[in-house]
Design a protein around this nucleic acid. Structure first.
Lengths: 233, 233
DNA sequence: TTAGCGTAGATTTTATACAATCGAGGAGTC
DNA sequence: GACTCCTCGATTGTATAAAATCTACGCTAA
């Protein structure tokens, strides 16, 4: 069951594996992840598994209760809205700072990502869609000198991906996203930065609306009305 | 050298210890944290130390390079501005959502924190100042239904604390902060929420300005002009 | 019946021991 | 003299095993 596993450390490899598995729904929200089972599944000891779980907790994918274990975190409606609100707030800000500093090589990188995006969509590879989408967005913000915001947005994109997978196979939406990405590149090339930022908000809102529509219809998203906000401190 | 150590797990205890030590400047920015040394210092094995370091990396206090170790992260000017920009963006938003939902007990909790704040300042306890300040801010946002934003802000407050300590012993600024906190409570009690949100921005900006003034004068903040933004992905 | 207590089993947490990796310094060669 | 390669020491990463903690079940007693 375990493939190449070619990362720098086992822990990092397990993080990727587990994250993909959670994103793909292999471990549904609410299920418990036992260290022993994970260790055996991936053919490693429990130490790297533990470290991976801690990492995933920091990323918000699982919740760890001392002496009880790790549980795949639930997806609440409150958090969906919060995540997309944050994206609408932070991403345009990053783009405004970053886009005016783009060089030719930056645009080339964007084009390259966009190309891979198209092939992934053509192949209907939902798994790749999310990671390439995140790559594209982050590439838009490389030139922004806001390191903290960048790492926060990177995490938000991963969470978004997790939600978006709920509506799997919605290839129509994927195609729209692709066209909007192309439009973003065009506007940045033309130097229309404020317009691009506004367009970006629309792009994010479109994804959110699409997601909420599916969630509402299927009654998914465990603990919907139940706004169980994490106790801080 | 090790005190009570009354936490739920050793790892959590070490996290607190190391974080305090970094905040206090015991381990200055750029210094390497050797697992072996830490383990011996705190009288534990290297496992809880490793886990603590990973946690601190997620919080942004250290940077871990595989097979090389953990290094206390540098404080760049870019990140200072980014952190305070984010606070000015996110905290008023939280307050607007939270304050209208305050009950009597919420206000009582705020008053209690404020009281402890005053005694800490009177005692000149710089270490306590930061944690109580963070507690106060988070208490302002308890009723907001934005779990992700809340956890992000909690992290930002910790980072802020780290920067703020640079200007140690600036008791004048601490007194001003205390008065502003009192004013915030007053405005929320009076139901003047939008005014409170605006005042909050001013409060945060005041702290930032104060900090930047000290940093500029002392030429502190390692790698000042050197905007070494973290490479994402 | 039901509440309280204690023990057993499973699971997590921590310690100890072993393996892998990185970087520095020196021997050898062109 | 400068460069390459290799070995050694130090440090981190991983495996295995022991200790601590929690949960569930069953027993006793009111």
């Amino acid at each position: 069951m375990t493939a190449p596993l070619k990362h720098r450390t086992l822990s990092a490899a397990i993080v990727d594996r587990l994250r993909q598995a959670i994103l793909a729904g292999t471990y549904p929200a609410g299920s418990q992840l036992r260290q022993d089972a994970m260790a055996e599944t991936y053919g490693v000891s429990r130490i790297p598994v533990r470290e991976a779980l801690f990492q995933l907790e920091a990323e918000g994918f699982v919740r760890i209760v001392p002496h009880k274990g790790a549980i795949v975190s639930e997806l609440s409606l409150d958090e969906i809205n919060d995540v997309f609100d944050l994206r609408c707030l932070l991403e345009p800000r990053l783009l405004s700072q970053s886009a005016p500093r783009f060089s030719a090589s930056d645009f080339a990188a964007l084009d390259a990502i966009q190309a891979r995006f198209e092939t992934a969509i053509a192949a209907g590879d939902v798994g790749q869609w999310g990671v390439i989408n995140a790559e594209f967005h982050m590439a838009l913000y490389t030139k922004a000198r806001q390191p903290r915001t960048q790492s926060i947005v990177a995490a938000l994109l991963q969470t978004s991906d997790r939600y978006t997978r709920l509506q799997l196979s919605n290839t129509a939406a994927m195609g729209i996203a692709e066209q909007e990405h192309a439009e973003l590149i065009r506007q940045c090339r033309a130097g229309r930065f404020t317009e691009a930022a506004a367009f970006l908000v629309g792009h994010i809102e479109a994804v959110r609306a699409d997601l909420l529509r599916v969630v509402a219809r299927s009654g998914a998203a465990g603990g919907a009305t139940n706004s169980r906000s994490v106790a801080l401190e």
